[in-house]
Structure formats: structure tokens, C-alpha cells
Computed example of a mutant assay.
Amino acid sequence: MASDQGTVRVDSWIWSVRLTKTRSLAASACRAGHVRVNGERVKPAHAVRPGDEVRLRHAGRERIVVISRLVRKRVGAAVAAECFVDNSPPPPAREDILAVGHRDRGAGRPTKRERRDLERLRGH
């Protein structure tokens, strides 16, 4: 289950330590350029070692972790937490997340004034 020597694929490791829900999501993130190992964009098959820094942009935030232990298979949350050191910035508070303009269903098209207000709210 655990391996303290050698290398592991980056997509497999990200999935094994529960940073993504599925391995295919981890591989897709790598292909889209959302995963960096030691500052370089990597493909899903890139080999990682203990001590490597992995940056993952996922679910609207960036996770920055340093690998402390390699695992090849998916492990429980308690074991997964021991496999990396989390240097990520804290997630923003729910109150700090901007409210996106929302119109009620069936309200019709927005007027020019409402559209401008929505664009101003979104920061355009």
C-alpha cells in the first residue's frame, strides 16, 4: 500500500491522497495544465518523489502540497493527511465569495439598466 522509495505517477498520487475525487479528474487536471510539480506543468504520467512540491488548481482554489510519502493505492483520509504537508492558503470565507447576479426563472430578459448592473456586479 505505501511506498517510501521510487516514484509514482502524479495523477495517481493526487487521487490516492484524496485531492481529487477520481483519477480521471486528476488526469484531466494535468492535461489542462492545472497541475505543476516543482513549478513545471506536467502530464499525468509524470513521476513524483518525496520532497516534490505539487500545485493543483481544483474546485476554485489552489492547493500547494509537499509530498512526504508516496502511496500507490487510494488510502483513508487519516493516512492521506500524513502523506503530504499542506502549504495551501486558507480557503476564502463564504461571506467573502462574491454573489453572482441571479435572475428569477421566468423574469424575462433583463432591461438595459439591469444588464449594466449585472455586469458591474460581475466586474466587467
Rank of each mutant, 00 (worst) to 15 (best):
D4S: 10
C83M: 04
G106W: 13
V37E: 01
R9V: 05
T22F: 07
A29Y: 05
T22V: 07
V37C: 07
K112H: 01
L56N: 04
R72D: 02
G60I: 00
R115C: 05
R116F: 13
R120M: 14
G123Y: 02
P91L: 04
V35G: 07
E119F: 13
E62C: 09
L98I: 05
A77T: 02
R74P: 00
I97G: 00
S3F: 05
P90M: 01
E82W: 04
H58N: 09
V79F: 06
Q5C: 08
A2D: 08
T7N: 09
G51A: 01
V75L: 05
R109D: 05
T20I: 09
G33D: 05
V75T: 07
D52H: 05
G33M: 06
K21H: 13
V54N: 06
G60L: 00
L25H: 09
P50E: 12
S24R: 10
H124P: 01
M1N: 02
P110V: 03
R74E: 02
R94I: 01
R23F: 09
H124F: 14
R120W: 14
D52T: 05
E95W: 03
S3R: 09
A47H: 12
R122H: 10
R63C: 04
A78R: 00
L98H: 06
G101M: 11
R63W: 14
E114R: 09
A47K: 12
D117A: 14
D11Q: 11
E82L: 15
V35I: 15
F84H: 01
H34W: 08
E119H: 10
V100N: 10
R57K: 12
C30G: 07
R103P: 12
A80M: 01
V54I: 15
H46M: 13
R103N: 11
D96R: 00
V85Q: 13
L121G: 11
T20R: 02
E53T: 11
S88L: 09
R94T: 02
A26R: 03
D52K: 00
A81N: 12
E82D: 14
D86H: 13
R94A: 04
